[in-house]
Nucleic acid binder design. Sequence first.
DNA 1: CGACCCCCG
DNA 2: GACGGGGGTCG
Length: 684
Amino acid sequence: MSFSQSFTSSPLSLTPQRRKSKFTFKHLSQLAASSTACPLRVIAHIDLDAFYAQCEMVRLGLPEDQPLAVQQWQGLIAINYPARKFGLNRHITITEAQKLCPKLICQHVATWKEGDEKWAYNEDAFKEMATRKVSLDPYRTESRKILALVKETLPAVPLQKVEKASIDEVFVDLSAQIHSILLKRYPELDGPPPYDDPTENLPRPSNTALNWDTDALVDLDASETEDDDPDWDDITMLIGSEIVRSVRLAVREKLKYTCSAGVAKNKMLAKLGSGHKKPNAQTIIRNRAVQQFMSGFKFTKIRNLGGKLGDQVVAAFNTDTVQELLEVPLEQLKKRMGDDTGGWLYNVIRGEDYSEVNPRTEIKSMLSAKSFRPTINEFEVGVRWLRIFVADIFSRLVEEGVLENKRRPKTINLHHRQVMQTRSKQAPIPQGKAMSEEMLFELSKTLLAQVVVDGKAWPCANLSLSVGGFEDGITGNKGIGGFLVRGEEAKAMLSNSSEVDYHGAEPPEKRRKIDDGGSNKFLLAREESSRGDSEQEFVGDLGVIEPHVDDPSIPPPSGQRSPPTVDDSENVAAATGLPRSLGIEEVTPLHSAKPNTTLLDQQSIETYLCKRCDAHVPVTEQSEHEDYHFAKDLQNEDRNSSTALRATQSTARPAPPRRGRGRGRPPGSGMVRAEKGQKRLAFG
DNA sequence: CGACCCCCG
DNA sequence: GACGGGGGTCG
């Protein structure tokens, strides 16, 4: 390993009160398996500092102390740290900002305009809000580079677990990697002496003082002192901080970006930690510091409690602090919030979070959107924006490798917002055909026509087009082990070259997805695997680090239990020995994939071309479409007759008769998210 | 599945 | 507030 050892042999000899560690050999194998129940687990959250602003700094090659803000129309969406010293924040106007900081550079984001083949940086884009749309592409590109470097810096796949959490954040489960390092550094841990007894406690770590280097260490809980013997969880945490420091260094040196990080036993704490000290710092929350760290927070800062749920908790218990909520008994939490949410809440404010790091770094959907100020009022105008959205999305699809058939979205989705109402329409993207910009455009027009047809659509305040349901394609090079098996590779080549058309049948060799397996879910404290075999039971052996709740903790919203994690510690252990560069080395495409050519014999949706709006409308909806134009004409007459009237009408007019789906519950009704068995809260 | 909702930065 | 992404439920 390249990072430096953080241990110095101890001059002070501590009294070895306990010969044994709190932790067992079982915990060690859980560590290898990245089990969410492992008390030695180490998770990192890495967060780029003022990311968009840093992107612009790097792109423009500005000196590091240059104050800079990223501008979007009349607002600022990111402010770098040099600028923050002047008291700038995100809710400030540009003129205020420039008054506070005369040297501030306000760099407008890149934009698309109609007819463009690509986004561009444009000096006075902000004057053209009505005709341009923002592009965040430059930031996605940088994000990809950084993510790739992070992955490169970490060991290859079996040991690597990286979750892209947003454009500027990742979670990393360091457990498996740390396990392998642990065995190398402490050979005494390698292989449990009593092979038949995983409950045997580990030997105490050798007597060393831990060198925490420049990391920000969180103050310890009241019951702990720095003089206490370190145990293995301190060691794993320290190794985690070394790894994270080396990752941050690489990002800094090679790509010029600074980031902040949190290292802790779970995602929630890691995330709180990364925000603890910024910029360009990392914070370690040792297990013995968790209570102290948590008690200082408002619980609304905790992931999932920042929104309506958090508000409800505040309302129910009349406090927003972790400290005070800790006094509320479990039963009360359950009574007021429901069993699942209450149980989850009880745990989370005690620093327990069993959610998994979801090893996913690719996006699942992409969206292009625009808010209209002023609103737009005609189908034709909407269609012009659709063309821009499609250009945007298509170019991003190309980057995703859609033309090479690496991945491909299954559905296309249009969201439409009127003043109050928001409606969306979705359609499958015909498979078996080559993806094309034109096809997406036609689909999107059809969707807009549908929206327009089935209810009042104007004035429209927002449109967004997205594609999603990405599926791995035929030439995918991201098999389970990061490679294709030989036989499969040949098949892949064959099927790729022959312009696949499955005619609805099961595609051959359906790509195994890197199973998200319920993903993000908040795992249980204990997994009572219904068949109570010993294959995988968890902590609690010695009452150490025991989950606090007597019953499963589930997510705030909608619990969905992940299945007990498979114990592949053997595989991992086997893997750790090897040098192993058998990862996801990007295999170059099998052949210089000329984009698929369109098949002519494809059965396509029968449409007619509306001469009034150029939309291809399914014949089955022709009459409705004509109705739409009829309604629109009436509307226009209406508008022309009195502008003043319209202004009042827009709020005073009774709700249109709703066809299709109604909107869920009334907003603000104080309902906890639709959750099975969830009760309505009393306070509303 | 399609439509809608919630949470996050 | 604008834009872009994640997750989930319900019928």
